[in-house]
Amino acid sequence: MLLDPYLKQPYLPRLSYWVGCFSVYDREETLGEELNKYDPNDPVDRDLLIRRYCLKSRPRETFHHRRAKFDVLEQALADPTFDFASIWEEDEDQEDFYDFWSWPSNWPEIIDPRGLFQAIKETAKEVWHEDLQRSNLPSLQSCREIPERDLGTYDWLFSVDNPQEWKNVFNLAVTPSDLTTLGPVFEKEDFTLSIEGPMNSLIFRPSHWPPSTAFTYCELDVLVSGISELEVRGSQFGGPLRGTLTRLNAGYFLRMEIGFDCVIECVALHVRIANVIGSYRRNSR
């Protein structure tokens, strides 16, 4: 169940949440003065108001909350009889921050209330594009139930967003089998794995590469972003690495086995590689 990020109760957004950011109740001398500079009926001002206030990133709000708000908006717009003008009226039967309406003193009446909410939707689709994509990714549990024959192979380097980064350095159609890592580094909703290992599969070396000039060691970073669901199990976060990467309709199902008992599983929009280095012997980064 999705909880309100502040109240810790079920999150049940209403359409009024989209315009509650314009209420200057108890903020007339701060937010009120700022909003009075704009005309919500002017297309340029309206676009600025939507981007700066309606779609402002809020602490603790996740892509799940944004999806829920978007669905409420989309549902209302799908109803040709919905009265959008009523959203701007105070509802005395509701006890919610967003219902203590006090609009900027210089604002005129909204000429086209439905048009305003339609503009909010179109701009949200642009600004929240990745969040809305993430919300449509399959669950981690459903990915675990994918038949083995449909899972990715261990040559996962060639299923990432940018396999050319590897090919530009090694020109090899194989993922090294003896890769190791010190473990994941998490930053907000993303993580990075720095990996390295010997190039033992030299039978895949292009015929025009003399043995003396073929790289024998590789280093690279794996960058995972747009994660919708993540699970990390185990205690040994460094050591040998074995991975599979399964392409979904949009995004990936990634499974990495690391060291003695660590397993990283996630569903994410993007898996990229970067900082690919080839050398003739082990180099410390």
Rank of each mutant, 00 (worst) to 15 (best):
F186D: 10
W166E: 01
W166P: 00
V185A: 13
V169G: 00
F170G: 02
N168F: 14
D190M: 05
F170W: 03
P163T: 00
F191A: 05
E189A: 11
L182C: 05
E187D: 12
E187T: 11
N168E: 15
W166A: 03
E187W: 07
N171W: 15
N168V: 06
E165P: 01
T181W: 03
V185W: 09
L179Y: 00
D161C: 10
D178C: 12
P163W: 06
P176M: 07
K167M: 11
N162R: 05
K167L: 10
G183A: 07
V169F: 11
F170S: 03
A173Y: 14
P163H: 09
V160L: 03
L179Q: 06
K167A: 03
L182T: 08
Q164K: 14
D161E: 08
L172G: 03
T180G: 05
P163G: 00
Q164F: 11
N171F: 14
T181R: 08
F170Q: 06
L182W: 02
L172R: 07
V174H: 00
F186Y: 11
D190E: 15
T181H: 10
E187M: 07
P184K: 12
N171E: 15
N168M: 14
E187A: 09
N168Y: 13
P163I: 06
N171S: 11
N168T: 14
L179D: 01
F186W: 06
V169P: 02
V174T: 10
L172N: 08
T175G: 04
S177Y: 04
F191W: 02
N162E: 12
P184E: 07
V169D: 08
P163A: 04
A173Q: 15
L179F: 08
T192C: 07
P163E: 02
T192V: 13
A173W: 13
D178K: 15
K188C: 11
D161F: 05
T192N: 10
N171I: 12
S177W: 03
S177N: 11
A173F: 12
V160F: 01
T192W: 03
V169W: 04
L179V: 04
D178E: 15
P184S: 11
E187S: 09
E189M: 10
F191Y: 02
F186S: 13
F170T: 04
N171R: 08
E165K: 05
T192S: 00
T192I: 09
P163F: 04
F170N: 00
N171D: 15
T180M: 05
V160T: 05
V169M: 04
S177E: 12
T180K: 09
S177C: 09
Q164S: 12
